[in-house]
Design a protein around this nucleic acid. Structure first.
Lengths: 330, 330
DNA sequence: AAGCGCGTTGCATACGAATGCAAAACGTGG
DNA sequence: CCACGTTTTGCATTCGTATGCAACGCGCTT
């Protein structure tokens, strides 16, 4: 940097104005006459000048940086979310600083992210610790949890109505005459799993039914395959399985068909959650609950920017309506 | 920021030392005695002090920021790459600033990214313009192109040996007795497509064969489905199709089986490129060419950091060996 | 005890842009 | 032509940290 970079002072010299004038030219709403502005811009153009965002951030306290944390990107729901989040932030003039972090090493990561004076924090992947969100809240930087809810009053949450979503799947199973209904859970500690399972069980018991079998696969593809293999290994097979997300549901369907030669949905109905793009693909045609990543992103960014701009202080939780997408798998 | 933030001066006051001493405590290799270092760290701990990375970046010229640009994340190869890139950069003390950008709006994005004084630039997705890389090279910031090659002397490139990869697929088709061989291209302007297709054609003509049909789907899932539908609509069907990447190959397989009721590989062999995780899933079992995202990432980060640290000035191109992964689709 | 050298320390300044304040330029009306 | 109000402008300072330089202290030698 040191050598080649052109500073506002350089531009000022060339344009025969003060450094302040240059600064004001690039500050919307500042007091500069049209003529000096033009001269500054011409000089800037000639030198290839661009204001140093870091210096600007220091003095204005506006880094325009937003930290975005994900635990993993394998589940296809998250890349989509990330892509949209990125574009939405860019459009509003913010810049996403991306962090990937498994549970456990979060403390270090959060410290480093705070070093960069980020103005907000977006947390995705259901498995991130939540007292971390609390800590940031204390420091006064707005936090949005995506696809996860906690009762902490400092964190904003955007999630789909997982309870209702689970219930919709239960009703679908019941209506299509399924009797032996199983559930394969995601991460037991996540709010998404808790709510989806809660809604699902509530839906079943509303019709006087209860779970036939249950397993847990931690939102992991290969674990889901293993759990499904076990679940179908006995002789009292389920005739329907609700899998806590699409990504695991794909693994389950693969086991059901390839390993056990069973048909979906004739022998077993399968349902997932998320409606990732792959759920609509021919081999799966997965019945699922849609979580619109566009809508989630939009809401998250709004919550964040409102707090940054000081338009609102208290955190909010937005629960988006669950929409059942019926395809052939159930 | 303004209010709550604790500065090195605050720590200095509490520890009864100068601000310099605090700074030196956090600068590896600086001259501080053990005793003052301890006092500083104690005071810092008490106040919850952390050095401001932005201020530090300004003066040292080391922002420790790396810009990472992707055009899209739908093709599952890219999220995997991104995740690994992120972790690798984090491990080396760098922080990825993520930008999503379609071709066309790149200029604006690049300008904004340069404002943040990034120390390096990673470009992924085969469809990014390449004179952009040139421009950054001129500004003296190292550039690495992932999964794309250009002949510009300022840009580092890391890609698999796409030519050989394409050739391997051709040989596989020939060896398994395929006669009417088709190709579905990705983006015509991308080096990946050029090389894969080139290698593929070379492989065919080495056995005195030539292409039976050709279409282009721009690395896009739905376009691939459309192109496949057209290609199989006539009465002189191909008996093998090489699709320029896995992501499109899935769409093609879906059309082949669901829309036309043909069997893979009995009626038509299908091959892809990338070996994304989904290629190993039961419904696809796709024969493909592996590009190891770990190895690509590793090489890219090394190239970048070497140039940043000034250990090397000239750019390099690394071509990773192509590995044929044979599954049941071909 | 004086002299030398090395490891520490603080002072002052720099990085590059934003901004409060006062001075200067401008424009208007009397 | 002057007085007054309204922009425009520049000066100086600020953000938080790093670093060259000079001063300092300590231990060791002669």
């Amino acid at each position: 940097m040191g050598k080649g970079s052109i500073t506002s002072a350089d531009v000022a010299r060339l344009a025969n104005v003060s450094q302040s004038a240059v600064s004001r030219t690039y500050t919307p709403g500042a007091s500069v006459s049209k003529s000096t502005k033009e001269r500054v811009l011409a000089a800037a153009e000639e030198l290839g000048y661009r204001p140093n965002a870091l210096a600007r951030a220091m003095i204005s306290g506006q880094s325009k940086l937003i930290a975005v944390m994900f635990a993993y990107l394998e589940n296809q729901f998250y890349p989509v979310l990330l892509e949209q989040m990125c574009r939405a932030l860019q459009d509003k003039g913010y810049h996403p600083l991306l962090f990937m972090t498994e549970t456990g090493k979060q403390d270090e990561v959060v410290r480093r992210l705070l070093d960069y004076q980020v103005q907000g924090l977006v947390l995705a992947s259901a498995t991130l610790s939540s007292d971390l969100a609390t800590r940031c809240g204390e420091l006064g930087i707005p936090v949005v949890l995506l696809n996860r809810e906690i009762d902490d009053p400092v964190a904003n949450c955007v999630a789909s109505d997982n309870f209702t979503g689970g219930k919709l799947i239960a009703e679908r199973f019941v209506q299509t005459g399924r009797k032996k209904i199983a559930y394969i859970a995601g991460d037991e500690n996540s709010s998404t799993n808790r709510d989806r399972e809660g809604g699902f069980l509530a839906g079943l018991s509303a019709h006087g039914m209860q779970l036939h079998a249950r397993g847990c696969a931690n939102y992991n593809h290969s674990e889901a395959a293993r759990v499904a293999t076990e679940m179908l290994g006995g002789d009292d097979l389920p005739d329907a399985i609700f899998v806590a997300n699409d990504y695991m549901a794909f693994a389950v369907m693969d086991v059901v068909r390839s390993h056990y030669g069973l048909r979906v949905p004739e022998d077993i109905a399968i349902a997932g959650y998320d409606d990732v793009p792959e759920a609509a693909w021919a081999p799966y045609q997965l019945t699922t609950v849609r979580q619109s990543s566009e809508v989630m992103t939009e809401n998250a960014v709004t919550l964040l920017t409102e707090q940054i701009d000081g338009k609102r202080v208290e955190a909010r939780t937005i629960r988006l309506p669950a929409e059942l997408i019926i395809r052939t798998s159930a």
